[in-house]
Amino acid sequence: MGHWLQRNIVEPGKLPLLLALAAFVLTFVITRVITRLIRAGRGPFGNVKAGGVHIHHVVPGVVLVVVGGFGAIASREGVGSGVFAVLFGVGAGLVLDEFALILHLDDVYWTEEGRQSVEVVVITAALVGLVLAGFAPFGVNNVSAEELQNRGGVIVTVGVNFLFSLLALSKGKTRVALFGAIIPLVALVGAIRLARPGSPWARRFYRRRPRARAKAGLRAYRHDRRWTVPRRRVQDWIGGRPDPRFTGPPGRR
């Protein structure tokens, strides 16, 4: 294990990224445990308030992201880079745990919309994990020294894979586009398959093709029916079940 860590993480300079990812995941897990305990009325934890204002944990998260980000840029290497990477990871975990709150500009932590925070955290951790494992954005992986010298080939590779990801995004397949930026085959599959109903691609190219619209709608229905329930169960297990009756900030956690 030590040899693998030295060869694949330390020598390539990926240790700060590993520390940031570990801090990010650990912070999210601890934060969710604490908020679920507060929600259940257990433990010594409670909401943080200052002058009657409820302080969401996204606030210290933003501070830590700023400190960790600028600190990492300034230090670049050595012990300092590792310390600032941890600070950045902790801050990112706190911020993305309340991603839905930022998106909706409302306290939706325990509502249906709050699931978006869990999904963003999972996707972020997965993407960073892929980069940590050696996958480069837009498919420039396992490139030899000779191939690197051929800048034209690298540029074409990046451009084509970027185009595939962009096509997948235009077809309403956000997750596929994100992971396709790291794994080109995923983007290729998303680019060639039918678009989801309501996506920019469907509105532009399926408008006068009723059969294509019907087929796309049927495929989206079958996909959602198959995966929505399992995905929500996983989200509930990670972040807690949303409360549709929740109406406001007081005592939300």
Results as ranks from 00 to 15, higher is better:
G61K: 05
G41H: 10
A126I: 15
N150E: 11
A181M: 15
G13K: 03
P12T: 01
S81P: 01
V65R: 02
V65H: 03
R76Q: 13
W237S: 09
E98A: 08
V59D: 03
G172F: 02
R231V: 11
G61Y: 08
R36T: 08
V122P: 01
L103E: 13
A72E: 08
A92M: 14
A181L: 10
R211A: 13
W227F: 15
A74E: 09
T174A: 14
R241Y: 11
E113A: 14
L5K: 01
A136Q: 14
F24P: 02
W237R: 12
G159S: 15
N150C: 03
L18D: 07
P249R: 13
L148H: 13
W227S: 10
L148T: 07
E98I: 02
A145R: 08
V140W: 00
R32M: 11
G198M: 06
L163A: 15
Q235M: 14
I9E: 03
L169T: 04
G80N: 05
S75R: 10
T228S: 12
Y109T: 14
K49E: 15
I123H: 04
E112C: 00
G180N: 06
V154H: 06
A216C: 06
T157I: 08
F205L: 11
G129T: 10
P244W: 07
A126L: 15
S117Q: 05
I9W: 06
G217A: 12
L37W: 13
V156A: 13
I102R: 03
L185K: 04
H57F: 14
R196Y: 02
G93V: 05
V79Y: 00
P249I: 15
V90W: 01
V53N: 04
R232P: 01
F246A: 15
L15Q: 06
K173H: 05
N142K: 10
W110A: 12
V121I: 12
H54P: 00
P242W: 11
F70R: 01
R231N: 09
R175A: 14
H56G: 13
G69W: 06
L87A: 05
A187H: 07
L185E: 13
A136E: 14
L194H: 08
G190F: 02
G159Y: 05
P44K: 12
R39D: 09
F45S: 06
T35Y: 15
V121R: 03
H223R: 12
N8G: 00
R151K: 13
R245G: 10
R219I: 12
L194P: 00
R42Y: 06
P137S: 09
G52T: 09
G80D: 04
G153Q: 10
V66I: 15
R175C: 00
E146D: 14
L94C: 06
K171G: 11
N47R: 12
S117F: 10
T35E: 14
V108T: 10
L17K: 05
S165P: 02
R209H: 11
S75L: 13
D243F: 09
G68T: 02
I30M: 12
K14E: 07
A20Q: 08
M1P: 02
P12Y: 03
F135Q: 11
R233D: 05
V176R: 01
F88C: 07
G89F: 05
V95T: 07
P60H: 10
V90D: 01
L19R: 00
A23V: 03
G69T: 09
N150G: 04
E98C: 06
I38W: 04
I55E: 08
